Simulated scan of single mutants.
Amino acid sequence: MIADGFTVRGPSDPLVVPLGSSVVLPCYVDKPLPVTGLEVQWGRTDSETPVHLFLDGESRSEVQQQDYHDRAHFFTDQIQHGNFSLRLDNLTAEDEGNYTCKVYSLQESNETVVQIKDVERLLVSGSSRSISASVGEDVTLNCSVDSHIKPEHIEELSWKRTDGDIMVLLYLNNEALPDSLDEEYRDRVEFFTDEIPKGNFSLRLKSVRTEDKGVYMCEVFTGGLSANTTVVLERLDFSTLHLMMLFFCIAAASGAALLLCCLIYCRSKNTVTSRTIRNLQVSLVFCPNISMFFAFIFWGLTEGFLTEIIICCALNILRCFMLIWAFSYLNYLQDNLKTWIRFSSRKKELAVFTVVVYSVFFTDAWKKSAHKTSTHRIILGMFFGYVVLFSFVLSRGKSF
Rank of each mutant, 00 (worst) to 15 (best):
N316W: 13
C287Q: 01
I250K: 05
C101K: 02
C287Y: 03
M292R: 08
S128T: 11
R87V: 14
T339P: 01
G223H: 12
L88R: 00
I2V: 15
A72S: 07
F74E: 00
K269D: 13
S109L: 08
L205S: 02
L337K: 06
T100L: 13
T373Q: 03
F247H: 09
D138T: 15
L33Y: 09
C27D: 08
S344M: 14
A93V: 15
A351K: 01
L157T: 07
E58I: 10
T222H: 02
E108C: 08
I264M: 14
T210E: 11
S239W: 03
I317K: 00
K372R: 12
D95L: 05
S226I: 02
L33M: 06
Y68K: 03
Q41W: 09
A314D: 05
A351H: 04
I379W: 09
Y104V: 15
P50N: 06
S239V: 07
S399G: 04
F54H: 10
L157F: 12
S291H: 05
K198S: 13
D194S: 09
R121Q: 10
E195R: 08
R377A: 03
V8H: 02
M322T: 13
S283C: 14
V387E: 02
I196Y: 03
L177V: 14
Q334K: 10
F305Y: 09
V16C: 06
H376L: 08
G199P: 04
I311Y: 09
W159P: 08
Q115E: 15
N174Y: 08
L330M: 15
R342M: 11
A295S: 15
V113R: 00
F400L: 10
T210D: 10
G304H: 00
D187T: 11
W340G: 09
V17M: 00
K160M: 10
N174C: 02
S47F: 05
L243T: 11
S132W: 06
S180K: 14
T49P: 00
V119H: 03
T92A: 06
G43A: 11
R121V: 07
E111T: 09
R275N: 08
I277D: 04
A3W: 01
D165I: 05
D56R: 12
D194Q: 09
V272R: 00
L123N: 10
K117N: 13
S21Q: 03
I341Y: 07
Q107L: 12
W340E: 08
L172W: 13
D364L: 02
H242G: 15
D77P: 01
T193E: 15
R87L: 14
L246Q: 12
G381H: 06
V388M: 15
P288S: 10
N270V: 12
C262D: 05
S207D: 13
Y68D: 07
E156L: 15
M245W: 07
G304W: 00
A176P: 12
A365R: 13
Q334H: 07
K206V: 10
I116H: 04
F400W: 10
N83W: 04
S125T: 15
D70F: 10
L123C: 04
G397P: 03
R278S: 15
T222M: 02
V189M: 11
N200C: 02
T100G: 06
I154Q: 05
C313T: 14
A251T: 07
R396M: 14
I310F: 06
T363Y: 13
Q115L: 11
M1L: 13
D89T: 12
L236R: 08
S359G: 01
F201V: 12
L241F: 10
C261E: 05
G82C: 07
Q41S: 12
Q334A: 13
V119C: 08
